[in-house]
Amino acid sequence: MKNLKETEELFDGIFRETLENGTAQVPPGVWEGVSASIGSGSAIAGAAVKTALWMKAAIAAVAVSAVALISYQLVKEEPVKPEQVDSTKQESTETQSPAIVGTNNPTSEVDKQLTIGLPRSKNNNNNSIPPVTPIDETVTETPVSGPDPIYSMDANLVNPMIDHSPSTGSTQEEKPVDNPETPQQKEVKELNPTTEYTYFKDSSSIFIPTAVTPDGDGINDTYIINLVGEESVEIIVYSIDNEVLFRTKNKYQAWNCKLPNGDDAPAGSYLVKVIYQFKGKNKQTTVRKLTIIK
């Protein structure tokens, strides 16, 4: 038997020799991202970046004013019908963001990736407002809330899957909902076709499922949320009558769908409140409807 140190050195050595100078096929798209960020043909990188930003702003400004001008002329030329004015106004406010997006060619790939998270999802949230259901009132009136306003999270905690379901509430009811698919919405769909997670810049994420099936088939039999990058978390499940059924500060602890008296919780609606804090962020609270399906 060789001595331990020798064995270890041999072991490491095999990895080193094989992998030290290894190569791998580079995926496409990386160079485009790099070249967009390093600025070519200019003596000073900083200047290049500044120019790019300035140009971006200028192009955006021109585009916006062009749109404004056109819509202004439209309004001016056409005899004023109340409906038309409305739609034109709507158009001009809504075109603003596509106009900026349209000129985003100078935006670097990196920038784009970074900004995907919050602002766009926020748009999605605002525009895809489902009909408000009674459950929201229950939520807003819930006296169990801690120091945080229950809906303080909605702008940040965007879960496309949940947001499209009728159970999610929103305070922005005055927004037009009759527009089936606004440009922003389309964009978000393209970017994020199936993702159920909310990604933050630092790759923290949270996913709060909205249904659980405790039927003993081994799939989704217990309720657990998926959370990454948190400093602290507290998960509380309430019955519709505001009775606390389950409470934990351990994200790995699942709710077995039992009532406090040991009976199985009946099928139906429940509420789950998640109070969590990502590293370096403020504490946030979100409430979702949870359905038990049997």
Partner: peptide
């Protein structure tokens, strides 16, 4: 991929 991109941006800058 992200590290590769970020790293190259640093290298060039």
């Amino acid at each position: 991929k992200d590290i590769l991109q970020e790293g190259f941006i640093k290298v060039f800058n």
